[in-house]
Design a protein around this nucleic acid. Structure first.
Ligand SMILES: [Mn+2]
Ligand SMILES: [Mn+2]
Ligand SMILES: [Mn+2]
Ligand SMILES: [Mn+2]
Lengths: 228, 228
DNA sequence: CTAACTATTTAGGCATACCTAATTAAGTCC
DNA sequence: GGACTTAATTAGGTATGCCTAAATAGTTAG
């Protein structure tokens, strides 16, 4: 019984590795099959299947022990960061050069990230002047694969009311993103925050922006850092 | 036995339709399975299979009679032109905005043409100022699907020596394309042509360009029109 | 008119990437 | 420690898009 070698240079493998990276968090903790199934919108059985392939490839992309979740191997991490770099450079490019509305960049980048060449990556990076952050405030991994750790925290974590600077905004929910943008909640903006209750927040950005009331889930999409 | 409906919104279907369009020529003649197999680099059996799917879809993309070749239906033609528009806009964009070398635009466009959104198409079209021609001199189909017929002829067809204007250059062979470019054979260039024999041509572009000797196959890649 | 050749189609498989249903392993609770 | 509950895996199947080999149709040559 010869083990046939499978091809893992696929869009699907890219997406699994990105998901493991995202869900593992800064500590790169093990990620469960169900969490991946949830995030990727596939059945848990499909996840198990792909994880087994990713783990048993000649160059393994994940460390996987049955029923104990996965974490990325060095090769898997490299691959995830490569795709993440494509994604964030594309978002920046679509926003800056092509004038996309902020809430539309993510979906387009999500598709194209798998199909651009290294040349395309290099050319848009050059055109943009080697940007360090995407339009959501997320750090763009370097070509070398290096990426600085986040020091910000979710707005939903604050105990005290006060004034903060917007670090970054999640790109996952385009409706929320559009609303936040319309209220001036953009990376670098100064923000007055009132926590009405465990569940409700009121934000006001500087300038002529109207205040905005957000539920806990919405506040979780905004990351902040101290005001200067 | 219910006929299950197949999904034909795929990269593969795109490529078959483009190939039928290209091989059908200006008269849109029927195209044979082997010609398609050759062009697409797949087995003839694979072509038959796809043509049957394209022909029997609820909205047929081709007219197909067994062993008599195919031609595009109205819907198939629309789809082929849509992808061709993506392709040529992308080539123009890569060349003009991202500074790609001319011989590299085709392969990148060939992949991306299937994955860009209508928004992306619109934005690069706008950025480029609604161009009518790609960097190879090929006409970019309008959004409406209208495209003017070619009036040029292949350089390989000339009977007389003389002076001509370069209309367009095939993007299929990147090595040849690079060489032609280096010798000033670019769309709009004025060209002195000598036909040495049935098989050999000598071209010289205006300016400080060196003359270039080409075999019949190379001359077939250049289309010309009369000098004003 | 039939044999031979060539083009095309049919039949049967394989790989990727999904799915559902059934099974098994791991915790939790009494 | 056995009964529940939940997470995860295995088993078996589907769709796309390709393949090779075998069969067949159409065409040309004697
Ligand atoms: Mn994004
Ligand atoms: Mn993706
Ligand atoms: Mn091209
Ligand atoms: Mn293509």
């Amino acid at each position: 019984m010869t083990t046939r070698r499978v091809n893992l240079n696929t869009e699907s493998a890219d997406n699994y590795l990105k998901a493991v990276f995202a869900l593992g968090g800064p500590e790169e903790e093990r990620v469960s099959s169900t969490a991946l199934a949830d995030r990727l919108g596939v059945a848990p059985a499909s996840v198990t299947n792909m994880l087994q392939k990713l783990a048993t490839s000649p160059v393994p992309f994940v460390e996987y022990e049955s029923r104990r979740g996965v974490r990325l191997s060095a090769a898997g991490r490299r691959r995830a960061l490569e795709i993440l770099r494509h994604h964030r450079l594309l978002e920046t490019f679509l926003y800056e050069v092509l004038g996309y509305p902020i809430e539309e960049v993510h979906d387009e980048a999500e598709r194209l990230e798998h199909f651009i060449s290294e040349r395309f990556e290099e050319r848009i990076d050059a055109k943009l002047g080697r940007p360090k952050f995407d339009p959501h405030g997320h750090c763009i991994p370097a070509l070398s694969g290096k990426m600085s750790k986040q020091t910000s925290r979710p707005l939903s974590d604050i105990e005290e009311d006060g004034e903060f600077v917007v670090d970054s905004i999640s790109d996952q929910d385009s409706v929320l993103l559009k609303r936040l943008n319309a209220h001036g909640v953009t990376p670098g903006a100064r923000l007055h925050v009132l926590r009405l209750s465990q569940e409700e927040f009121v934000l006001r950005a500087g300038g002529r922006f109207k205040p905005l009331q957000l539920p806990l889930s919405g506040a979780g999409a905004v990351r902040i850092r101290p005001n200067d």
